[in-house]
Nucleic acid binder design. Structure first.
Length: 281
DNA sequence: GACCAGGGCGGCC
DNA sequence: GGCCGCCATGGT
């Protein structure tokens, strides 16, 4: 059994399917901190604390049902790993063992990955936390992620003052779109149609759209192509291919409904174990 | 001082 | 449709 749930506490029993460090370090989420050896995660207007014990991890929160879904605890990752076996990426899977694909809030994920474009993780975290500090609901010892309405009330200069740079206009435009009725409920929309709708948002291109599809809506048949995946593609498949759109299509065809899982294992493994080489010609 | 970071946009063809 | 220059900012 992976876990048990009682009251406001989830106890993860099978640590082969749940590794806190890998989960928070693999680039899906940005609002987390390590404090006193525990990991605190803020998602929307909720917070949980992950406490690692000798043979289990305890997830404390005031909404266990929310985080049961958030951490995708219904999925058997040993079964996923077994299905990935024929693809020969066992080193990456072994390295990232215990990663889980999260079910994050669509709006928060949209804004977070707009901010992530051509950016690095420490800076992304800082920008998002400053947005929450300024505009998020005060939940006591933390700030909720701001609502679309709260974000839509500000102008680009405000987000530039938080360090968002040229993404400031995208944040304003997209927040206003959502506040004005853009429907973020794409759970039951097929992947290609959902991607098309996400691409209509300012600041959302191919890569950001695929990250939103994967990390919020859990469309598992997408393979986000970022700078690391380009290197992976050159190493594993074809170094002459330079078109990220083509890479994404071929990788989706190769991994099918396991594409999202494979991408996450490979991305995490390469980012932490290989130095990006300078491409020259 | 150049290069990089989970790229996207607008102009151009 | 594809290609290309540009875009803020902080870290190495």
């Amino acid at each position: 059994m992976l876990y048990t749930k009682e009251d406001n506490r989830i106890t993860i029993r099978d640590l082969s399917q749940f590794d806190t460090k890998h989960i928070v370090d693999c680039g899906q989420l940005f609002r987390y901190e390590t404090r006193d050896g525990n990991v605190e995660i803020i998602a929307e207007n909720k917070k949980c604390v992950l406490k690692t014990q000798k043979d289990c991890v305890i997830i404390e929160s005031d909404d266990a049902d929310y985080f049961e879904n958030y951490f995708d605890l219904a999925t058997d990752y040993n079964a996923v790993k077994a299905l990935l076996e024929p693809f020969g990426i066992d080193k990456a899977i072994e390295y990232g063992n215990g990663i889980r694909l999260l079910r994050q809030s669509p709006f928060e994920t949209i804004i977070s990955f707009i901010v992530s474009a051509n950016n690095n993780i420490p800076r992304i975290k800082g920008i998002l936390n400053r947005m929450a500090d300024a505009l998020g609901e005060d939940m006591g010892d933390y700030r909720a992620f701001p609502t679309p309405e709260a974000l839509a009330r500000q102008n680009a200069a405000f987000y530039k003052s938080l360090g968002a740079g040229y993404r400031a206009e995208y944040i304003v435009d997209t927040a206003r779109r959502v506040a004005d009725g853009y429907d973020v409920d794409l759970y039951d929309v097929p992947t290609d149609e959902a991607r098309k709708r996400l691409l209509s948002l300012m600041g959302v291109g191919d890569k950001v759209a695929d990250c939103i599809l994967l990390f919020a809506y859990r469309k598992e048949d997408v393979f986000p192509v970022d700078t690391w995946v380009k290197k992976i593609y050159a190493d594993l498949i074809d170094e002459r291919e330079k078109n990220p759109k083509t890479m994404a299509k071929i990788l989706r065809n190769k991994f099918g409904n396991l594409a999202g899982y494979a991408q996450q294992y490979l991305f995490y493994y390469y980012r932490n174990n290989f130095v990006k080489e300078k491409s020259e010609d």
